[in-house]
Simulated assay, not measured.
Amino acid sequence: MASLTMLTRSFACTTFLLCVTVYGQLSSTFYANSCPQALSIVNNIVQQAVNEDKRMGASLLRLHFHDCFVNGCDASVLLDDNPNFESEKGARPNQNSLRGFDVIDNIKTQLENVCREVVSCADILAIAARDSVLQLGGPSWEVMLGRRDSRVPNKTAANEDIPSPFLEFSGLQIAFQKQGLSVKDLIALSGAHTIGQAQCFTFRNRIYQESNIDPVFAQSLQATCPRDDGVGSSNLSPFDIVNSNVFDNNYFKDLVASKGLLHSDQALLNGRDATFTQDQVALYSNDQTGFFTDFQVSMVNMGNIKPLTGTDGEIRKDYRKPN
Protein backbone atom coordinates (compact mmCIF):
# COMPACT_ATOMS: atom_id res chain seq x y z
CA MET A 1 0.00 0.00 0.00
CA ALA A 2 1.01 3.56 -0.50
CA SER A 3 0.53 4.39 3.17
CA LEU A 4 -0.51 7.77 4.48
CA THR A 5 3.10 8.59 5.27
CA MET A 6 3.98 8.05 1.61
CA LEU A 7 1.12 10.08 0.20
CA THR A 8 0.77 13.81 -0.25
CA ARG A 9 -2.15 15.10 1.75
CA SER A 10 -3.61 18.57 1.54
CA PHE A 11 -6.74 20.28 2.77
CA ALA A 12 -8.59 23.01 0.94
CA CYS A 13 -10.43 23.96 4.13
CA THR A 14 -10.54 23.08 7.80
CA THR A 15 -14.05 21.63 8.08
CA PHE A 16 -13.80 17.82 7.79
CA LEU A 17 -17.09 17.19 6.00
CA LEU A 18 -16.69 20.02 3.51
CA CYS A 19 -13.02 20.08 2.67
CA VAL A 20 -11.50 18.82 -0.56
CA THR A 21 -8.86 16.27 0.32
CA VAL A 22 -6.15 14.95 -1.97
CA TYR A 23 -4.07 11.81 -1.34
CA GLY A 24 -1.47 11.42 -4.07
CA GLN A 25 -3.46 11.52 -7.29
CA LEU A 26 -6.79 10.68 -5.62
CA SER A 27 -9.29 13.40 -4.81
CA SER A 28 -12.66 13.49 -3.09
CA THR A 29 -13.99 15.65 -5.97
CA PHE A 30 -12.57 13.61 -8.84
CA TYR A 31 -15.95 13.24 -10.62
CA ALA A 32 -17.33 16.69 -9.78
CA ASN A 33 -17.17 17.77 -13.43
CA SER A 34 -16.92 14.53 -15.40
CA CYS A 35 -19.82 12.72 -13.69
CA PRO A 36 -21.48 14.82 -10.98
CA GLN A 37 -24.29 12.23 -10.62
CA ALA A 38 -21.88 9.43 -9.70
CA LEU A 39 -22.11 9.57 -5.92
CA SER A 40 -25.90 9.90 -5.85
CA ILE A 41 -26.36 7.01 -8.29
CA VAL A 42 -24.21 4.71 -6.16
CA ASN A 43 -25.90 5.85 -2.96
CA ASN A 44 -29.42 5.31 -4.28
CA ILE A 45 -28.71 1.79 -5.51
CA VAL A 46 -26.85 0.79 -2.34
CA GLN A 47 -29.65 2.19 -0.20
CA GLN A 48 -32.24 0.15 -2.09
CA ALA A 49 -30.13 -3.03 -1.99
CA VAL A 50 -29.44 -2.78 1.75
CA ASN A 51 -33.08 -2.00 2.51
CA GLU A 52 -34.05 -5.19 0.67
CA ASP A 53 -31.29 -7.31 2.24
CA LYS A 54 -29.53 -5.94 5.33
CA ARG A 55 -26.73 -8.48 4.95
CA MET A 56 -25.83 -6.87 1.63
CA GLY A 57 -24.24 -3.96 3.48
CA ALA A 58 -21.60 -6.25 4.98
CA SER A 59 -21.15 -8.01 1.64
CA LEU A 60 -20.38 -4.78 -0.24
CA LEU A 61 -17.96 -3.67 2.48
CA ARG A 62 -16.23 -7.05 2.26
CA LEU A 63 -15.89 -6.78 -1.53
CA HIS A 64 -13.91 -3.56 -1.12
CA PHE A 65 -11.72 -5.12 1.57
CA HIS A 66 -10.97 -8.25 -0.49
CA ASP A 67 -10.24 -6.08 -3.50
CA CYS A 68 -7.78 -3.77 -1.76
CA PHE A 69 -5.74 -6.54 -0.14
CA VAL A 70 -4.88 -8.05 -3.53
CA ASN A 71 -2.59 -5.81 -5.59
CA GLY A 72 -4.34 -2.73 -4.25
CA CYS A 73 -7.81 -1.23 -4.77
CA ASP A 74 -8.13 -1.95 -8.49
CA ALA A 75 -11.40 -3.93 -8.88
CA SER A 76 -9.45 -7.08 -9.72
CA VAL A 77 -11.82 -9.02 -7.45
CA LEU A 78 -14.67 -8.38 -9.91
CA LEU A 79 -13.08 -10.01 -12.95
CA ASP A 80 -14.45 -13.35 -14.15
CA ASP A 81 -12.40 -16.29 -15.43
CA ASN A 82 -11.37 -16.08 -19.05
CA PRO A 83 -8.97 -18.07 -21.29
CA ASN A 84 -6.07 -15.83 -20.21
CA PHE A 85 -6.40 -15.89 -16.42
CA GLU A 86 -8.12 -17.34 -13.36
CA SER A 87 -10.42 -15.07 -11.39
CA GLU A 88 -9.83 -14.10 -7.78
CA LYS A 89 -13.41 -15.24 -7.19
CA GLY A 90 -12.12 -18.80 -7.14
CA ALA A 91 -9.49 -18.14 -4.46
CA ARG A 92 -10.05 -19.84 -1.09
CA PRO A 93 -11.10 -16.68 0.81
CA ASN A 94 -13.61 -15.76 -1.92
CA GLN A 95 -15.05 -18.98 -3.31
CA ASN A 96 -18.75 -19.44 -2.52
CA SER A 97 -18.39 -16.51 -0.18
CA LEU A 98 -18.37 -13.14 -1.93
CA ARG A 99 -21.73 -11.50 -2.63
CA GLY A 100 -23.03 -8.26 -4.07
CA PHE A 101 -21.90 -8.59 -7.67
CA ASP A 102 -25.43 -7.96 -8.89
CA VAL A 103 -25.51 -4.65 -7.00
CA ILE A 104 -22.19 -3.58 -8.54
CA ASP A 105 -23.52 -4.63 -11.95
CA ASN A 106 -26.60 -2.45 -11.46
CA ILE A 107 -24.46 0.52 -10.40
CA LYS A 108 -22.07 0.12 -13.31
CA THR A 109 -24.91 -0.16 -15.84
CA GLN A 110 -26.58 3.02 -14.62
CA LEU A 111 -23.30 4.93 -14.52
CA GLU A 112 -22.41 3.84 -18.05
CA ASN A 113 -25.80 5.16 -19.22
CA VAL A 114 -25.07 8.67 -17.94
CA CYS A 115 -21.25 8.87 -17.89
CA ARG A 116 -19.81 6.41 -20.37
CA GLU A 117 -16.37 5.03 -19.46
CA VAL A 118 -15.80 7.62 -16.74
CA VAL A 119 -16.33 6.01 -13.31
CA SER A 120 -14.06 3.08 -12.49
CA CYS A 121 -15.23 -0.16 -10.93
CA ALA A 122 -12.60 0.31 -8.21
CA ASP A 123 -14.17 3.62 -7.22
CA ILE A 124 -17.63 2.06 -7.28
CA LEU A 125 -16.47 -0.51 -4.72
CA ALA A 126 -15.02 2.21 -2.49
CA ILE A 127 -18.15 4.36 -2.62
CA ALA A 128 -20.49 1.39 -2.13
CA ALA A 129 -18.53 0.30 0.96
CA ARG A 130 -18.90 3.74 2.55
CA ASP A 131 -22.59 3.99 1.68
CA SER A 132 -23.25 0.49 3.05
CA VAL A 133 -21.76 1.39 6.42
CA LEU A 134 -23.73 4.63 6.52
CA GLN A 135 -26.95 2.85 5.58
CA LEU A 136 -26.54 0.50 8.55
CA GLY A 137 -26.04 3.32 11.03
CA GLY A 138 -22.28 3.70 10.86
CA PRO A 139 -20.09 6.72 10.11
CA SER A 140 -19.47 8.43 6.79
CA TRP A 141 -16.13 9.54 5.39
CA GLU A 142 -14.74 11.27 2.33
CA VAL A 143 -14.01 8.62 -0.27
CA MET A 144 -10.91 9.41 -2.27
CA LEU A 145 -11.61 8.88 -5.96
CA GLY A 146 -9.73 8.58 -9.22
CA ARG A 147 -8.69 4.91 -9.10
CA ARG A 148 -8.51 3.00 -12.35
CA ASP A 149 -9.23 -0.67 -12.96
CA SER A 150 -6.73 -3.46 -13.43
CA ARG A 151 -6.79 -5.62 -16.55
CA VAL A 152 -5.85 -8.83 -14.76
CA PRO A 153 -6.65 -10.52 -11.43
CA ASN A 154 -4.16 -12.26 -9.15
CA LYS A 155 -5.61 -15.47 -7.73
CA THR A 156 -2.30 -16.44 -6.10
CA ALA A 157 -2.14 -13.16 -4.20
CA ALA A 158 -5.79 -13.54 -3.18
CA ASN A 159 -4.96 -16.90 -1.61
CA GLU A 160 -1.90 -15.48 0.14
CA ASP A 161 -2.74 -11.90 1.12
CA ILE A 162 -6.37 -11.87 2.28
CA PRO A 163 -6.19 -12.51 6.04
CA SER A 164 -7.45 -15.92 7.12
CA PRO A 165 -10.06 -16.31 9.88
CA PHE A 166 -7.69 -18.82 11.51
CA LEU A 167 -4.72 -16.45 11.95
CA GLU A 168 -3.07 -15.59 15.22
CA PHE A 169 -2.50 -11.90 15.93
CA SER A 170 1.06 -12.04 14.61
CA GLY A 171 -0.22 -13.32 11.27
CA LEU A 172 -2.85 -10.59 11.10
CA GLN A 173 -0.24 -7.98 11.88
CA ILE A 174 2.03 -9.25 9.09
CA ALA A 175 -0.88 -9.28 6.60
CA PHE A 176 -1.80 -5.68 7.43
CA GLN A 177 1.79 -4.45 7.55
CA LYS A 178 2.29 -5.87 4.05
CA GLN A 179 -0.39 -3.43 2.89
CA GLY A 180 1.13 -0.51 4.80
CA LEU A 181 -1.53 -0.61 7.51
CA SER A 182 -0.83 -0.20 11.20
CA VAL A 183 -1.93 -2.24 14.21
CA LYS A 184 -4.42 0.51 14.97
CA ASP A 185 -5.81 0.14 11.43
CA LEU A 186 -6.02 -3.61 11.97
CA ILE A 187 -8.08 -3.25 15.13
CA ALA A 188 -10.34 -0.50 13.76
CA LEU A 189 -10.99 -2.30 10.46
CA SER A 190 -11.72 -5.55 12.30
CA GLY A 191 -14.66 -3.66 13.75
CA ALA A 192 -16.35 -4.11 10.37
CA HIS A 193 -17.30 -7.50 11.80
CA THR A 194 -19.98 -5.74 13.80
CA ILE A 195 -22.11 -6.44 10.71
CA GLY A 196 -22.49 -9.56 8.60
CA GLN A 197 -22.22 -13.29 9.13
CA ALA A 198 -19.66 -16.08 8.79
CA GLN A 199 -19.92 -19.65 7.57
CA CYS A 200 -19.67 -22.52 10.04
CA PHE A 201 -16.39 -23.89 8.68
CA THR A 202 -14.64 -20.62 9.60
CA PHE A 203 -15.46 -20.94 13.33
CA ARG A 204 -16.07 -24.67 13.89
CA ASN A 205 -12.71 -25.31 15.55
CA ARG A 206 -13.15 -22.29 17.80
CA ILE A 207 -16.49 -23.34 19.30
CA TYR A 208 -15.40 -26.94 19.95
CA GLN A 209 -11.69 -26.75 20.71
CA GLU A 210 -10.73 -23.33 22.06
CA SER A 211 -10.72 -22.29 25.69
CA ASN A 212 -10.76 -18.48 25.35
CA ILE A 213 -14.45 -18.48 24.48
CA ASP A 214 -17.51 -17.99 26.63
CA PRO A 215 -18.92 -21.54 27.05
CA VAL A 216 -22.56 -20.51 26.81
CA PHE A 217 -21.78 -18.59 23.61
CA ALA A 218 -19.92 -21.59 22.17
CA GLN A 219 -22.79 -23.93 23.00
CA SER A 220 -25.31 -21.59 21.41
CA LEU A 221 -23.47 -21.90 18.10
CA GLN A 222 -23.15 -25.67 18.08
CA ALA A 223 -26.69 -26.33 16.90
CA THR A 224 -25.98 -24.24 13.79
CA CYS A 225 -22.47 -25.61 13.35
CA PRO A 226 -22.16 -29.36 14.04
CA ARG A 227 -18.82 -30.82 15.07
CA ASP A 228 -18.47 -33.08 12.02
CA ASP A 229 -16.52 -31.60 9.13
CA GLY A 230 -18.66 -31.12 6.06
CA VAL A 231 -21.95 -31.08 7.98
CA GLY A 232 -23.53 -27.65 7.88
CA SER A 233 -20.24 -26.04 6.86
CA SER A 234 -21.99 -23.24 4.97
CA ASN A 235 -24.49 -22.50 7.75
CA LEU A 236 -24.31 -18.88 8.84
CA SER A 237 -23.99 -17.23 12.22
CA PRO A 238 -23.75 -13.48 12.92
CA PHE A 239 -20.52 -11.84 14.03
CA ASP A 240 -22.43 -9.54 16.37
CA ILE A 241 -24.75 -11.52 18.62
CA VAL A 242 -26.83 -8.44 19.47
CA ASN A 243 -27.67 -7.12 15.99
CA SER A 244 -25.58 -7.97 12.94
CA ASN A 245 -27.52 -5.50 10.80
CA VAL A 246 -26.50 -2.39 12.75
CA PHE A 247 -23.03 -0.86 12.49
CA ASP A 248 -22.02 -0.13 16.09
CA ASN A 249 -19.33 -1.08 18.61
CA ASN A 250 -20.91 -4.31 19.87
CA TYR A 251 -18.21 -6.35 18.12
CA PHE A 252 -15.66 -5.03 20.62
CA LYS A 253 -18.00 -5.65 23.54
CA ASP A 254 -18.24 -9.25 22.34
CA LEU A 255 -14.45 -9.58 22.28
CA VAL A 256 -14.16 -8.30 25.85
CA ALA A 257 -16.73 -10.95 26.84
CA SER A 258 -14.79 -13.70 24.96
CA LYS A 259 -17.56 -13.93 22.39
CA GLY A 260 -15.58 -13.25 19.23
CA LEU A 261 -16.92 -15.51 16.49
CA LEU A 262 -13.67 -16.17 14.60
CA HIS A 263 -10.32 -17.24 15.99
CA SER A 264 -8.84 -14.15 14.30
CA ASP A 265 -11.41 -11.93 16.02
CA GLN A 266 -10.57 -13.05 19.55
CA ALA A 267 -6.88 -12.99 18.61
CA LEU A 268 -7.00 -9.18 18.74
CA LEU A 269 -6.63 -9.50 22.50
CA ASN A 270 -3.49 -11.64 22.16
CA GLY A 271 -1.06 -9.37 20.33
CA ARG A 272 2.66 -9.17 21.02
CA ASP A 273 2.01 -5.77 22.54
CA ALA A 274 -1.02 -7.06 24.39
CA THR A 275 -1.36 -3.92 26.46
CA PHE A 276 -1.96 -1.76 23.38
CA THR A 277 -4.31 -4.19 21.63
CA GLN A 278 -6.32 -4.92 24.77
CA ASP A 279 -6.52 -1.24 25.63
CA GLN A 280 -7.64 -0.39 22.09
CA VAL A 281 -10.35 -3.06 22.09
CA ALA A 282 -11.50 -1.91 25.53
CA LEU A 283 -11.55 1.71 24.35
CA TYR A 284 -13.71 0.91 21.35
CA SER A 285 -16.04 -1.25 23.45
CA ASN A 286 -16.74 1.74 25.67
CA ASP A 287 -16.51 4.56 23.11
CA GLN A 288 -18.47 4.08 19.92
CA THR A 289 -17.65 7.61 18.74
CA GLY A 290 -13.94 6.90 19.14
CA PHE A 291 -14.29 3.68 17.15
CA PHE A 292 -16.22 5.45 14.39
CA THR A 293 -13.57 8.18 14.16
CA ASP A 294 -10.72 5.70 13.84
CA PHE A 295 -12.69 3.49 11.45
CA GLN A 296 -13.18 6.45 9.11
CA VAL A 297 -9.45 7.11 9.02
CA SER A 298 -8.55 3.46 8.54
CA MET A 299 -11.02 3.03 5.68
CA VAL A 300 -9.35 5.94 3.87
CA ASN A 301 -5.97 4.34 4.57
CA MET A 302 -7.14 1.01 3.16
CA GLY A 303 -8.71 2.69 0.13
CA ASN A 304 -5.32 4.12 -0.74
CA ILE A 305 -3.55 0.78 -1.09
CA LYS A 306 -1.64 0.97 -4.38
CA PRO A 307 -4.33 2.63 -6.54
CA LEU A 308 -3.89 2.69 -10.30
CA THR A 309 -4.06 6.30 -11.44
CA GLY A 310 -3.24 8.48 -14.43
CA THR A 311 -2.79 6.27 -17.49
CA ASP A 312 -2.30 3.02 -15.58
CA GLY A 313 -5.02 0.43 -15.92
CA GLU A 314 -8.31 1.34 -17.58
CA ILE A 315 -11.93 2.29 -16.95
CA ARG A 316 -13.77 -0.99 -17.54
CA LYS A 317 -17.00 -0.84 -19.51
CA ASP A 318 -18.11 -4.12 -17.92
CA TYR A 319 -16.95 -4.93 -14.39
CA ARG A 320 -16.58 -8.63 -15.27
CA LYS A 321 -13.95 -8.35 -17.99
CA PRO A 322 -11.17 -6.11 -19.27
CA ASN A 323 -11.99 -3.88 -22.22
Results as ranks from 00 to 15, higher is better:
270 N>R: 06
103 V>R: 15
43 N>Q: 14
70 V>G: 01
211 S>D: 10
156 T>W: 02
261 L>K: 00
108 K>A: 08
254 D>W: 07
73 C>P: 00
111 L>I: 13
229 D>F: 06
124 I>R: 12
199 Q>R: 14
84 N>Y: 13
195 I>W: 07
162 I>C: 02
35 C>V: 00
8 T>R: 07
38 A>P: 11
159 N>L: 08
52 E>S: 15
172 L>T: 09
138 G>M: 04
99 R>T: 09
45 I>C: 06
260 G>D: 01
284 Y>L: 00
2 A>F: 10
321 K>W: 07
20 V>M: 02
268 L>C: 03
9 R>E: 05
190 S>D: 00
148 R>T: 06
53 D>N: 14
307 P>T: 11
225 C>P: 01
119 V>P: 08
1 M>T: 14
17 L>T: 10
192 A>D: 06
313 G>A: 02
229 D>Q: 13
240 D>T: 07
35 C>F: 01
222 Q>F: 04
233 S>R: 11
111 L>D: 05
10 S>D: 11
218 A>I: 00
249 N>E: 05
89 K>H: 12
55 R>D: 06
1 M>H: 11
104 I>K: 13
322 P>F: 11
189 L>Y: 12
314 E>K: 05
148 R>L: 04
321 K>N: 01
276 F>W: 02
86 E>H: 04
15 T>L: 12
302 M>K: 15
217 F>D: 01
128 A>N: 15
218 A>R: 02
15 T>A: 10
273 D>C: 01
23 Y>S: 13
254 D>N: 15
36 P>M: 08
252 F>C: 03
159 N>P: 12
103 V>A: 12
29 T>N: 12
176 F>W: 11
7 L>Q: 15
63 L>T: 10
137 G>P: 03
112 E>S: 07
101 F>P: 06
42 V>C: 10
77 V>L: 15
35 C>I: 08
37 Q>G: 03
75 A>M: 08
168 E>G: 10
305 I>H: 07
135 Q>D: 00
320 R>A: 04
20 V>C: 03
316 R>G: 09
298 S>E: 11
82 N>W: 09
106 N>K: 14
93 P>V: 09
116 R>E: 09
194 T>C: 06
292 F>T: 01
215 P>T: 03
21 T>Y: 04
11 F>Y: 13
282 A>P: 01
267 A>H: 10
205 N>S: 13
315 I>N: 06
242 V>W: 06
290 G>Y: 02
35 C>L: 07
46 V>W: 14
320 R>L: 03
262 L>M: 05
303 G>S: 12
232 G>P: 10
45 I>V: 15
58 A>D: 10
21 T>V: 15
97 S>N: 08
307 P>N: 12
95 Q>E: 09
13 C>L: 11
195 I>M: 10
85 F>W: 14
243 N>A: 09
82 N>H: 07
69 F>Y: 15
137 G>A: 02
103 V>Y: 12
141 W>K: 00
168 E>A: 09
273 D>V: 07
311 T>W: 04
296 Q>L: 01
257 A>P: 12
224 T>V: 09
145 L>E: 09
291 F>M: 03
112 E>P: 03
253 K>Y: 02
287 D>W: 02
80 D>G: 00
102 D>L: 07
123 D>T: 01
224 T>P: 03
286 N>L: 09
29 T>K: 00
284 Y>K: 08
50 V>H: 13
174 I>W: 09
